[in-house]
Design a protein around this nucleic acid. Structure first.
Lengths: 226, 226
DNA sequence: AAAGAGCTTAATGAAAGCTTAATGGGCATC
DNA sequence: GATGCCCATTAAGCTTTCATTAAGCTCTTT
């Protein structure tokens, strides 16, 4: 169920819109001010943000910028009564993903939300606990547990395993991983990464439902058969 | 320089829009009918498609569907004079990425194009799944699955099969494939391509509803009988 | 029937990947 | 400031993978 943060200062309108979206199987959190919205963002994870431009006090663009700073990848849609051209452009320059003018055509809004969600990559939200077959991996404590045995991973091992978990049964591109963890994709780092892959394989070897497969020239897949 | 395919039946308007977009550093190809547009799609690679809904003869939605079948990941924007709600929804269900009503606010159009291109670049890890008869082909993981058997394809095999899938039941021109994958159409690469075609045929031989047919001197067709 | 295009199997060599072991910098403890 | 440990990196030697090349054949076209 996609989670939507709705930032809308008019409580009546906000409530109605929230109810309406709930009918379409969205989980909607309503914040009635920009500040409240930012707080919610820190509390939980959302897939999309609906933002009223005409907020009292702070204007919506400032909030939008703030949101982008905190959660750069969160797509958002502007809601506004003002149909001025300047607003539209400002919105898109900010990286806003779409734009809806009030009075809102709800069906159109739902369609746009779906369009945007469909596009945004399904990278799983950051968790600190992963189940990998019979193993449990705690990303924060850097521990890997199999039945009664628990071992502590080093920082790099944990980072790499986290990336693999986030892409479980999907390709983790070598370049992406190198760029993310090492900041550079040169030959030395590639070899270093190989060493860590090798270690992780050893750690995970007790459950043969799990394997880290290589896709030649592209990257690795953490395969888990359920 | 982003490449845009503009499908617009009114040559005057099409020309003006093309020139305007060129000013913004887009490389625009103008097609004045749906058929011409589809032809262009087979000839070269585009980043985005602008499609006039009100085409003569065939209606735009049919063309849109066709485009999606050929190049599933190509984002497109509908242009239309008709602002009916039914159109909007139909468009979004088709996976249309945005929607602009004539008369066009050019600056807004440029802004939306940028917004969409920015997104489609970030989504890069292409996650396309193709069904080929009883086979399933995962382009990302480079796996080909038939019933319970799964095999991993090499990079070139996967690339070539992707092209064939994109042109299912249509001619994949030899030159186009060579240019796209090898960057050169010389004799050696042609022979190399033959080897890959041969391998793909072997992989796909378990379902006799499927075949890769040769069109002498022109290219290959991935034939699937439904 | 000749020439070019296409087909298939096998050989080749360079690049990528794997694993174990060695190295040495950083950090805490004494 | 010396000692020892941890851990990322580097090294080294090996195996695997895969695009290409080669070779010999058949099919298509004229």
């Amino acid at each position: 169920m996609p989670r939507i943060l709705l930032i809308e200062d008019n409580p009546n309108f906000g409530y109605i819109l929230k109810e309406y979206l709930s009918l379409y199987d969205f989980e909607v959190t309503l914040a009635t001010s920009g500040e409240a919205g930012l707080e919610e963002l820190n509390k939980s994870v959302f897939d999309l943000c609906l933002l009223d431009i005409m907020l009292p006090g702070q204007d919506g663009f400032t909030i939008a910028k703030e949101i982008q700073r905190i959660v750069p990848d969160l797509p958002f849609i502007f809601l506004t009564a003002k149909a001025l051209k300047i607003d539209k452009l400002k919105g898109f320059r900010l990286g806003c993903d779409d734009y809806i003018v009030k009075p809102i055509d709800e069906e159109l809004l739902v369609a746009r939300i779906h369009a945007i969600l469909k596009r945004s990559v399904t990278i799983k939200p950051e968790k600190s606990n992963y189940k990998i077959g019979q193993y449990t991996f705690d990303n924060q404590l850097q521990t890997l547990t199999f039945q009664a045995q628990q071992q502590t991973l080093t920082e790099r091992e944990a980072q790499l395993l986290t990336l693999l978990c986030q892409h479980e049964n999907q390709l983790l591109e070598r370049k992406y991983a190198l760029q993310t963890l090492w900041g550079d994709t040169d030959e030395f780092n590639r070899k270093s990464m190989d060493v860590f892959i090798s270690r992780l394989r050893k750690y995970l070897s007790q459950d043969n439902q799990i394997s880290i497969k290589n896709v030649h020239g592209r990257g690795f897949v953490l395969e888990v058969n359920d």
